Computed example of a mutant assay.
Amino acid sequence: MKNLIKIYLVSAILALTLFSCSEDEVELPAITSFSSQTSPNASGTPGELLKIEGTNLSGLEKIILDNKLEVSFNPNLNSYNAIFFNIPNYDFEDPYNFGVQPIKFITANGEIDSQINILQPAPVFSKLSVPNPKLGDKVTIKGSWFINIQSVTFGEDPLEYTLVSDQEMYFIVPTDATEGQHIVITTEAGSTAIVEAGPGISNTTFVDINFGFVDYLFEDFDGNGLYTSTWGFYGDAGDLSVTAAGETGNCAQYDYNGATTFGYNGCQNNEAGAFLPNTATEATKATFKMMVNANAGASFDVILDTWAYNFTVSTSGWQEVSTTLDQFGSNYNPGNAATDTEKIDPSGILQVKVSLPNNGTSSSVQFDDITFRVQE
């Protein structure tokens, strides 16, 4: 009987020992890093892919955001060392919260409590219903992320607006608006800006108010405008061609061949007489506008008869360049504009010329939609 009791005691101790070892061997899931496509921290915008790295992460069963929203995920992207999932797309009918909030990962081996910072995207403009509104006109802005709006300003003054949806709003152009103002929408994510870029900052839509301006299309190389004849060359001329590579239809392309015999080059319309009204005599009230396609850093001169202005583009691709005519310098020299006591008379302009730097190297520029805007 004593021996039997000893056997029972040994068996019980062995069972306890085995049970203890089994519990010690269970490895709980753990996170070592939590990052997104744009941040090493656990933050991102709606729809952005996030990655969790750690140990014992296999067997993912659920992801719970803010203790209420179940987040979908692809189990095929779940492994022992990693979990991939996308921040849910934002539902404007049933929105979730932005900012820092809890997130839970439930796996077959245990639960992980963590935090995530969901960032609200900054407002984005796509277009205005009226590109050149008059004072008192109703203007509709379309875009995205018009939510949690803190303010809307026109220039530096608060602007009354009506929010139609997260993608649309409208306002009335103030009757006391002045030239050069722009709209700024400020949300919890940030504000718009003219030049800056970065987190919380979106693009700016410039409001080109019509203060009695009239646009005179000079040439669009599609058979429209005040001048639709041929163009010629002068100086160390290269090649000029009309190509279908414009944004909308044809454009002109001037290629300087690098010759330096004359020290100048360019292309121009054949003289066909003055084209602006004889009342357009003030250079400050007339603006030259042209679409160009060139590489960032490209420099070229536009010459109106003998008055010159130099443009240098900061970005590549099609873009508009413009300046008022009082910025053109006399005697083919853009630098003379600062000291010229007399300015060009817009009503007497006969020719538009495009010239490239005569630096001995070949270069090219495409141009289109030459327009003069006159305040009448």
Rank of each mutant, 00 (worst) to 15 (best):
A30S: 07
N86Q: 12
E219C: 14
D345L: 05
L217F: 05
V130W: 08
A252R: 14
Q351V: 10
N257R: 07
L304T: 04
V195P: 00
I116F: 05
N359V: 09
Y256K: 13
D176P: 01
T260W: 00
T323R: 01
F85V: 06
E70I: 02
G266W: 14
I7G: 03
V164F: 11
N67K: 05
P46D: 11
A259E: 12
A274S: 15
I31N: 09
T339K: 11
T230I: 08
G360L: 04
Q268L: 12
K134W: 04
V207I: 15
I147R: 04
D166T: 10
M169V: 04
I147D: 02
W231D: 03
L16P: 00
F146L: 04
M290Q: 10
Q101C: 09
T284V: 15
P102V: 04
D255Q: 14
K289N: 10
Q375M: 03
V173A: 09
G200P: 02
L356T: 07
Y264T: 14
V152L: 15
F213E: 08
D222N: 15
A274K: 02
D345W: 01
I172D: 03
P123V: 05
Q167V: 13
I31C: 10
P95I: 09
G200S: 08
S36W: 15
Y264Q: 05
N210C: 11
M169C: 09
D326I: 04
T192H: 10
N67H: 06
P123Q: 04
A237P: 00
N359A: 03
N250E: 13
P334W: 12
E168C: 12
T341V: 10
Q101I: 13
P75G: 05
N132C: 12
G155M: 11
L14V: 07
S314W: 03
A259F: 07
D215S: 08
Y227K: 02
